[in-house]
Design a protein around this nucleic acid. Structure first.
Length: 884
DNA sequence: AATCCGACAGTCC
DNA sequence: GGACTGTCGGATT
């Protein structure tokens, strides 16, 4: 949703107020579903029935009365029983002049002349799914400004397309300078509206001389000498070198682009929040990311989750200990000035800005403790932007980061002034942050942020996540460089580069520590054995970790990802695990972000415990042409009953768990000739061929046998199916037996022709506990992989009698499931719905399986995992000895 | 030859 | 619109 458009639409609605349609058009403006509104307009789904003009469940209750006591009307509607049961989010009433609205969830109310409604558009944003708590007023300002800047950027690009990197760089700098001027004239760096007014009155409306004017002005801002300048330029203060020193060409303008500059100037930049504004601007400027404004910027909450454990908690602890002891406070100040904050993927600088602000707040607190409120003293912050370092691959973001740091410095100067009555002057600008426009995976970090035994270096940030298959060729070669072509690293996420480089930096500097927000997947499943042995080999430890949490920020569409935060240190003084509920001190954090045992489980091709082979199900590679739904199968069979023998029941994870029938065309080579005579089959095979021919390398290799799946594994008598992904909420992973007609798809694992007791092993609580530790995840759900979960599972050799005991329990489980033929496995294994009898049968099975390990029952899952890891380590050692 | 992954993706209410 | 829960192609091993 575009906020500017929204405002515009509402303005039109109120300017030409149309009593009949007003409320419907208002709802449409918030992008509520058109079809529903059409139905409401017709009256068919309006629940109002005379009490009000419109009543829409969960959304709105609306009434229009020309001469009504609006407050009375709202109260009356709110207490009406029909309205109550419809639970409308808003009750809206108007007399055609004034509009009164009440938010039933937050109890906020809005009373405004109808003509001013557009100004209060944010009141109804919950209709569009944006809650007020998520959308603070300053972020409305941010979004509005970002959208305007995006338009300006487009226009400038159109008439000044950059041809070279130098030109692109100049354009970035120009925009950063422009932003500075907008901000400056609203926050007392310049005189009020000085910049916009100057353009308005000193340049031609057609934009023709704006380029010349800005070129001159930017030059003037960089020189101290104000003599020999016309007054309208001399009135601007000296800003300095940093931002304005080099000469960069200013783009050409026309009527439109000049007008947008003036529009931008009229926005209220005082409310802009440099923490996130930079990210929004960046998103707007990169058209590919437009529409998901700032989807990847890190929320302040998540930034705090990084910087608090990394250094803030330690600084605060030192402050507490210092109390009012002047000496200790002064030494803490010295420590503040020795801190270096380094974000090697800084984007537009969010982390650096928040870190800067937090350190400044701490400095203010210390000053207050030392000097009280002695107004006479000249307090000046001694925290320098030069303590902040960044690397950013995108040129525009790098410029925005530098600029945002200056803006943040100015904001903190104002904060200083409001506490102490004076502060260091913002102008001329001090030296800025060290933000290198470089590829962080390539450049030596010491070159950007040199370590120094005197200083404390904190490396932090939220580097980019890109799975092994989503990386570009260049990013792949970045990875090769960082990992020095180490073996079996090809599937690592791109972010692993940052961990590797941080580990190297930290391992060489006792005073350096790092912490990144990361995709959780580097601590799960197959990436663990790829990355962490290399990190731990450097002598680095995880000194704190935040357990996986769902990514969220205030952007419209949040990224679909589960994150963790991981801190690395050389010699940690404490090791702490955080989750959403709090923190706890532990002795050691392993690569799975679990406390305790230092074990990494590597995938193996064969079961370490000699369990029968489990392999991935058959991957069809058919473009959905060899697979059939039940109706498709029935209509085929109606015409060609002889096809029955070539149609097999088919199971992936999903339809196995939810009990939906699926089918596939399954032909042996010798069947092809006969089958091709049936036009429907010939058509499907041909479509499969076309699909494969236009696919990747693997697909093209399968063109010549398009009548078959990529793999054609089947059971002689029966098989066990294990879903590849299963909800983490289930106590057990639901697995099942299938007959020899069944085809298992590659969204599930298969053991063909197994002895029945294996079902008991894989179903057992002991095994699920193992899987929860070592498996990869899809969000937080378990992802079952044979090489990681099954082949690594340590299981004792069984006597025949033990196998029989387990088998009898297995049949108990099966029988108990069959007592509920109407229920799907998904129903049966939902934790809240699991039938008591089934749970009992599983418990009996668990006890039997666990007795294979030892006679004494296990106390809890912690003990189970400890014993399993212990046995795993022994198996690995025995295995490596056997190899040698 | 077989795998394990996805700044995810489809479905349901 | 968000709660819920697992597809499918394929570069890598």
């Amino acid at each position: 949703m575009n906020i500017e458009q929204l405002e515009e639409i509402i303005r039109e609605l109120t300017d030409g107020f149309d009593a009949e349609n007003f409320i419907y058009d208002l709802l449409l403006a918030y992008e509520l579903p058109k079809a529903s509104i059409t139905r409401l307009r017709k009256g068919t789904s309006n629940l109002g029935k005379g009490d009000c003009d419109l009543l829409w469940k969960n959304r709105v209750c609306y009434a229009h009365h020309d001469s009504a006591d609006l407050h009375g009307l709202v109260d009356q509607l709110k207490s009406n029983s029909r309205v109550k049961s419809a639970k409308p989010r808003f009750v809206v009433v108007t007399d055609g002049e004034t509009l009164l609205a009440s938010d039933t969830k937050t109890d906020d109310s809005l009373e405004t002349p109808l003509s001013d409604l557009a100004k209060h558009f944010d009141f109804f944003l919950p209709w569009a799914g944006m809650e007020k708590s998520q959308l603070r007023s300053e972020s409305v300002a941010d979004i509005r400004a970002a959208e305007k800047m995006g338009r300006l950027y487009d226009l400038i690009l159109e008439s000044n397309p950059p041809k070279t990197d130098t030109e692109r760089h100049s354009l970035n700098i120009f925009l950063a300078r422009l932003l500075f001027c907008f901000f400056a004239e609203d926050t007392r760096i310049f005189a009020e509206d000085q910049f916009t007014k100057a353009i308005d009155s000193h340049t031609a409306p057609d934009g023709s001389d704006l380029q010349q004017y800005l070129t001159r002005l930017f030059k003037v801002l960089a020189v101290e000498d104000r003599r020999d300048l016309p007054k309208y330029l001399a009135d601007f203060p000296y800003v300095n070198g940093g931002l304005f020193c080099d000469e960069h060409p200013v783009p050409k303008f026309d009527v439109q682009s000049r007008k947008i500059i003036l529009d931008c100037g009229s926005l209220n930049w005082r409310d802009i929040n440099p923490d996130i504004f930079g990210s929004m601007i960046q998103a707007v400027v990169h058209s590919s990311e437009r529409g998901n404004l700032g989807i990847h910027y890190t929320s302040v909450l998540n930034i705090m989750k990084v910087i608090e454990p990394l250094f803030l908690e330690s600084l605060r602890a030192e402050l507490d200990k210092a109390g009012s002891n002047r000496k200790k406070l002064e030494s803490l100040l010295e420590r503040l000035y020795r801190i270096r904050v380094f974000d090697p993927a800084c984007g537009s600088g969010n982390f650096l800005i928040i870190a800067y602000k937090e350190l400044s707040k701490l400095e203010i607190e210390i000053f207050q403790r030392i000097y009280g409120d002695q107004q006479s003293f000249q307090f000046e912050s001694k925290i320098q932007l030069t303590q902040f370092y960044g690397i950013e691959i995108d040129g525009f973001a790098a410029e925005t980061a530098k600029l945002s740091l200056w803006l943040a410095e100015h904001q903190m100067n104002l904060a200083f002034e409001s506490v102490f009555g004076s502060a260091r002057p913002t102008l001329p600008l001090h030296d800025g942050g060290h933000v290198a426009h470089e590829n962080a995976t390539r450049i030596d970090w010491e070159e950007v942020c040199p370590s120094d035994s005197e200083n404390e270096v904190y490396i932090l940030g939220n580097p980019p996540y890109l799975g092994g298959k989503s990386q570009s060729a260049e990013q792949k070669s970045d990875m090769d460089l960082v990992f020095e072509n180490a073996k079996n690293c090809g599937q690592l996420d791109y972010i692993a580069s940052w961990f590797m480089k941080a580990a190297r930096y930290v391992s060489e500097n006792a005073n350096a520590r790092s912490a990144f927000v990361t995709t959780s997947s580097i601590c799960q499943g197959s990436q663990v054995p790829q990355l962490w042995p290399l990190v731990f080999r450097l002598g680095v430890q995880i000194h704190f970790a935040h357990k996986p949490f769902k990514w969220s920020n205030n952007a419209k569409g949040n990224a679909q990802i589960t994150c963790s935060i991981i801190g690395l240190a050389n010699q940690p003084d404490a090791v702490v695990i955080y989750d959403d509920h709090g923190k706890r001190n532990v002795r050691f954090i392993n690569a799975y972000l679990a406390p305790g045992v230092d074990v990494i489980v590597a995938p193996t091709a064969k079961s370490l415990s000699a369990l029968p082979t489990m392999i991935t199900g058959n991957n069809p590679y058919d473009g959905k042409n060899l697979l059939l739904t039940s109706p498709e199968r029935e209509s085929l069979l109606a015409k060609h009953p002889e096809m029955e023998k070539w149609i097999r029941p088919t199971f992936g994870s999903s339809n196995f768990l939810s009990g939906i029938d699926r089918w596939c065309i399954w032909l042996e080579d010798e069947d092809v000739e006969a089958a091709m005579k049936i036009p429907e089959i010939a058509k499907r095979i041909d479509k499969t061929r076309q699909f494969r021919a236009s696919g990747g390398e693997v697909a093209r290799g399968l063109v010549s046998r398009s009548h078959q799946f990529r793999y054609t594994h089947t059971a002689k008598s029966n098989s066990i199916i294990v879903p590849a992904v299963s909800s983490e909420k289930r106590e057990y992973i639901p697995i099942g037996f299938l007959d020899n007609r069944a085809i298992i798809l590659h969204s599930a694992m298969a053991i063909y022709d197994p002895p029945p007791w294996v079902f008991g092993v894989v179903s057992s609580r002991l095994h699920v506990t193992w899987v929860r530790t070592v498996a990869g995840r899809l969000k937080t759900d378990l992802r079952y992989a044979s090489a990681l979960c099954y082949n690594t599972f340590p299981f004792p050799d069984l006597a025949e009698s033990q196998k029989q005991e387990i088998e009898s329990c297995v049949f108990g489980v099966i029988d108990s499931r069959e007592e509920h033929p109407e229920k799907t496995l998904s129903d049966l294994y939902a934790p809240s719905k699991m039938p008591g009898s089934l749970r009992e049968m599983h418990q009996r099975l668990d006890e039997t399986v666990e007795r294979c390990y030892r006679s004494k029952p296990f106390k809890d899952d912690d003990e189970r995992i400890e014993v399993l890891l212990q046995r795993y380590s022994e198996l690995i050692i025995r295995g490596s000895k056997a190899d040698a």
